[in-house]
Amino acid sequence: MLKSLHENKKVQLIIGLVLGIFFGFFLQKGGVTNYNIIIGQLILTDFTVFKVMLSAVIVGMLGVYLLRSLGFAQLHLKQGSIGSTVIGGLIFGVGFAVLGYCPGTAAGAVGQGSLDALFGGVVGMLIGTGLFAAMYPKLQRKILNKGYFGDVTFPQLLKVNPWVVVITFAILLTAFLFWMENIGL
């Protein structure tokens, strides 16, 4: 039943839209579509972004691994390499601070009326992704595959049952959130 749902392209477009509406709603209610809150995180005066992201990761991880163990979901991992993940990540980080939004929160910021996110952020991202598409063949040959390590997960790397890592991460990340609250962040 799930497979036929996954293959129904039209229904999937509607599900994507509905999930997106919830995503935008939660991002906005969490405060992370707000420039001031994102910059506050990056200059370490406001820890809302970490709190939202880490609690999403803890809850998401427990549920997705449970769905996987029950046979209702499979993982979709991204390939990684030093040349792609590290260099791209650092460029992204600089853009994150210069713009003050990331791609998803920029879309959310547009929804709450932030015109800098629309005319600066969205227009800039369209130019930036277009530039990347133009340079892709060259980057692919020269940089993106340097230090390739593929789509390995921590449980595979440590050669243990995934649940060992899931439970450990859940405890460590929760402890980290409690610690942040305790020291007043």
Binding site: G120, I127, F132
Partner: peptide, 9 residues
């Protein structure tokens, strides 16, 4: 910022 963000992503 948007250009760097799209490119880096």
């Amino acid at each position: 910022g948007g250009i760097l963000l799209g490119f880096g992503a």
